[in-house]
């Protein structure tokens, strides 16, 4: 009844939006910034990408525009938190509400339109899925092997020390926030262009929040993010299959399953960390704290 290969391909697709968003947020958080606006940046990317793909007929242009749009709204967050030193949690929540509202407003005329067809990549797998998989080792290498990644981790771990050594904390963080926005934008556009194939209000349906949870779940590592995204994608595909097979479990419970699975794993991991040596696991030392320049 269930063909494992097709299930795996579906899993890859279902995991891709979250994979992009969570990888972006991973880089942001490793730089010491907590941006809770992932959902808002995703929905902005979903709309902007869909609109651009529809206008040009080229889905790849759609993804490029989605990345730009995600990065642009992320810049609002950057201005608020890095220049005006606003609270990061409040600014992130505001960004989510802002993105959802903005997309709903400008998305009205696009409702009911079908997305342009996407060329199929190697092994019948979507090009953007490939790009997402490629980003995992790239980001791992960037964080753990490159000089720029080391500086970024230093800024996230102890911004005062990084500043004392002469690194520009604000510049590093703004770049990371922009990258996180672009990744969230691409993730959102994947939902509208490649999964649902049309624009619907509120279509990201909490994917941004799941991405945030997965970054914690991953213990701030790229491979962990991949595992988390696949877990969520896998349960999503599974529950859809079970629904299609007519299993006598209420649909609401099945739809809830991916979110529930993420929460359960998160709780288990947090519980384990609580009893390990370092409280808060591998969370970057300066996560969520604003840096005051004292010169």
């Amino acid at each position: 009844m269930i063909d494992p290969i097709s299930v795996f391909l579906l899993l890859l697709a279902a995991a891709t939006p979250i994979l992009f968003a969570a990888l972006g947020e991973l880089v942001v958080e490793r730089a010491g910034v907590l941006n809770l606006g992932v959902e808002g940046m995703m929905i902005t990317g979903a709309l902007a990408g869909f609109a651009a793909a529809h206008a040009t007929g080229n889905p790849f242009i759609g993804f490029a525009v989605a990345a730009l749009a995600g990065a642009s709204v992320a810049m609002l967050f950057a201005i608020l938190t890095q220049f005006l030193l606003a609270n990061q949690v409040a600014s992130g929540l505001a960004l989510t509400l802002f993105g959802l509202g903005l997309a709903a407003l400008f998305g009205k005329p696009l409702e009911g339109i079908k997305a342009p067809p996407m060329p199929i990549g190697p092994l019948r797998i979507n090009w953007i899925v490939w790009l997402g998989l490629l980003m995992v080792p790239l980001i791992w290498w960037f964080l753990n092997r490159s000089r720029a990644g080391l500086i970024l981790r230093g800024v996230g771990e102890n911004h005062d020390a990084a500043d004392a050594l002469g690194y520009n904390v604000r510049r590093v963080r703004i770049a990371a926030i922009a990258f996180g926005g672009a990744m969230a934008g691409i993730g959102g556009a994947f939902i509208s262009i490649s999964i649902v194939l049309q624009w619907t209000e509120g279509m990201t349906a909490g994917a941004g929040w799941i991405a945030l949870a997965i970054v914690v779940f991953s213990n701030w590592t790229a491979l962990g993010v991949l595992a988390g995204a696949w877990l969520f994608g896998g349960v999503t595909v599974l529950q859809l299959r079970l629904q299609a097979a007519g299993v006598s479990v209420p649909v609401q419970l099945l739809s809830m399953a991916p979110y529930l699975a993420t929460i359960i794993v998160l709780v288990l991991i947090s519980a384990r960390q609580k009893f390990s040596h370092r409280a808060g696991g591998a969370a970057p030392g300066s996560l969520g704290q604003n840096f005051h320049v004292l010169r």
């Binding site: 000089r147 080391l150 102890n158 005062d160 020390a161 990084a162 690194y167 030392g285």
Partner: peptide, 20 residues
């Protein structure tokens, strides 16, 4: 050498030195 350590707790000795 600073009054308050300007080190990064989560990084290794080598990474800390490379940053300086």
């Amino acid at each position: 050498v600073f009054q308050h350590f300007s080190l990064f707790d989560a990084l290794t000795v080598a990474e800390n030195i490379a940053l300086g």
